[in-house]
Design a protein around this nucleic acid. Structure first.
Lengths: 279, 279
DNA sequence: CCAGAATGGGTACGGTGTACGCGAAAACGA
DNA sequence: TCGTTTTCGCGTACACCGTACCCATTCTGG
């Protein structure tokens, strides 16, 4: 069994209030190079790129300042000429990855959502169901490509350039729903939360397999005696009578949940449309 | 700005395959005390309790073996007589917190979900909408009480005693939906993923506030000039025309998403019921 | 009574982020 | 042209972390 510890940085006054301004400058690239002094031998870009590469290949735990410095062939402390601290570097990694080009949207999603169309924009407009579907799929793809995203505090980069672009894109696809602005944000938050939670579960499982060296089957086998004893104890009557295929990997929980979410939005959109025609 | 680093443990062969058995024993409390040797001065229970207390009060980053040992008045290495490593301690913390008593269910949730009832079990049965509502609320409560839960790898404790009990409880409330077993699991996973993702966003925001020392307003103020410049750039036309109250805190995204989810389930349940009567 | 087992815990090692300070490099003012 | 000033690279040092190893102490079964 393996549960990765998470250890914070200095945690005290190190990441004070003064860093916010610097971090924003880094995010938006506002810094002009000063004319005095020697030319810098590194770029912020190179550092962030290296960090993302290491994280992708070996996980976020492999991303340390010392590791990055050897990767870049410099001294460790040189990195601090470009980044105030590791926390800010993580922010930059996040924005970098959020800015990656999205895969092409899939169009068959619209009809898979089922039932009749009651859009505010008429039949010719781009379908919001496809937009929701694409949004969920591309976010899940991103999280699968970069599982370490799930371990990074996303609170403060919501307003970075890449995140803004993503939000803009998402809102564009949702226009046809005919909902109020805060509700549109609600749609996005709901879908993203769902995808994130699901991806986390999957990433945790993958990490556990990697760290313990046990495959899923081996782990279940190891677990089985305890489970069987628990079932026989009578304390779990509901679970004891579950069908064999209940926990089968054939069932796609992402697909299931996404369909339910879209159906839930559909209900609201129709409700609004009906209220609109009667009023 | 502050992004907490996450640093892994030894990460190599330390958490090998042999620990799984030991961890399961600890989870299910199978160990008999050997009669030889001195009596242990500590309990696994006391260690876990102390760890949870520290995590609740100061965050998971404050939970270190040294800190726990001083908290318990023992030597640091003594802890390793009770727990194979920190990873397993985290597993135990997880199961401990999952086993906490749930708050009383709220009953008004059933009608808030709206529309007509088409249950397979008739009108007298406990309503699954209330069950879903309660499930989501109690999980969110738990995550708010113990935000560090979001940083712990949940993959391997899914089958601990407390988690099993929770699953059993959830399944009981969902019986009336008339869905297949894998679909019931799908409902649970979908709701939990949504809640977890949402809680994570909130917890991240809270942690960012705590670590930077800036309030939300201060942070937004600091951010504003960059945002305004971005809006004026014309690169974000959709966002630029958003209503003032779009990002207001008055809008409850949890409530919104949960209603949508329940409505989505409702659609499936009705669909099945109709297919059942025509067949 | 004492051999054998189990507990408590000190020391030490290799990892982490980063504060501090110094030498070298580059451009500006005189 | 020559200080002067600013910036860059980065070596050293410190406080933390998890935990391997080892030994003295404490207890019990034979």
């Amino acid at each position: 069994m393996a549960n990765d510890g998470t250890t914070a940085a200095t945690d005290g006054t190190a990441t004070g209030s003064g860093d916010t301004a610097r971090s924003l400058e880094l995010l938006w690239g506002g810094g002009e190079r000063p004319s005095r002094g020697p030319k810098p031998g590194l770029t912020l870009d190179r550092i962030v790129t290296a960090a993302v590469a290491v994280a992708d290949a070996e996980g976020l735990s492999a991303v340390s300042m010392r590791r990055l410095s050897t990767e870049l062939g410099t001294g460790t402390m040189s990195l601090y000429r470009y980044v105030p601290g590791k926390a800010e570097l993580l922010d930059l990694m996040l924005d970098r990855v959020l800015g990656e080009p999205l895969p092409a949207p899939r169009e068959e999603a619209a009809e898979a959502a089922g039932t009749d169309r009651t859009d505010a924009t008429g039949p010719g407009a781009p379908d919001w169901r496809a937009a929701v579907d694409t949004m969920a799929r591309s976010y899940l793809d991103n999280l699968r490509r970069h599982p370490w995203l799930l371990k990074i505090n996303q609170a403060r980069t919501v307003l970075g350039p890449s995140a803004l672009r993503g939000l803009e894109l998402a809102l564009g696809g949702l226009r046809g729903m005919g909902l109020r602005d805060p509700e549109l944000i609600g749609v996005i938050i709901t879908v993203n939360s769902f995808v994130e939670g699901l991806a986390r579960t999957q990433a945790d499982a993958a990490e556990a397999v990697r760290q313990t060296g046990l495959s899923d089957e081996e782990f279940w086998d190891r677990q089985r005696p305890y489970l069987e004893r628990a079932m026989l104890s009578g304390a779990y009557p509901m679970m004891a009578t579950m069908a064999e295929d209940t926990f089968s990997a054939d069932f796609d929980h992402f697909e299931f949940g996404l369909r339910r979410l879209i159906a839930g939005f559909e209900a609201l959109v129709r409700e609004r449309a009906e209220a609109g025609t009667t009023a």
